[in-house]
């Protein structure tokens, strides 16, 4: 049971996180909440990527006095590098989204997304 939980808390859990975020983006009315949901999706993706590179009982991929040689068991460094990139871009997206929300609040004086009907042609 514990094994199952461990396995699914990383793969299934991160996928669940992604879809919770997706549901939040689609259903919440408050724009700040939508941005939080976007952040959740981001976290879910990052977790999933890192989990894909995990090796049981292995170390962080750094050669130091604890693991003096590359013969030791390391986890996969590439997903970690990717996630590093992903985190930075997620931050940039969130910051830009918040700036937009601020601007929209200035203009419409509301955070409710369904009261903002400007996006039609």
């Amino acid at each position: 049971m514990l094994n199952f939980l461990e396995e699914w808390s990383f793969f299934g859990g991160s996928i669940l996180l992604i879809f919770i975020g997706l549901y939040g983006v689609l259903s919440r009315k408050n724009m700040i909440k939508i941005l939080i949901s976007l952040g959740l999706m981001d976290t879910g993706v990052n977790l999933l990527l890192v989990a894909l590179g995990y090796v049981e009982a292995a170390n962080a991929p750094i050669i130091n006095s604890v693991n003096p040689s590359n013969a030791a068991a390391f986890v996969d460094p590439i997903p970690q590098a990717l996630v590093l990139t992903s985190i930075v871009i997620g931050t940039a997206v969130l910051a830009l989204g918040l700036a937009l929300v601020m601007k929209i609040y200035d203009k419409y004086s509301t955070l409710n997304i369904s009261e903002i009907r400007g996006l039609k042609w």
């Binding site: 983006v25 689609l26 997304i113 369904s114 903002i116 009907r117 400007g118 996006l119 039609k120 042609w121």
Partner: peptide, 11 residues
């Protein structure tokens, strides 16, 4: 379809 509801577009 396009009544200006932003969330619908995401949907």
């Amino acid at each position: 379809f396009a009544a200006g509801r932003v969330q619908n577009y995401a949907l």
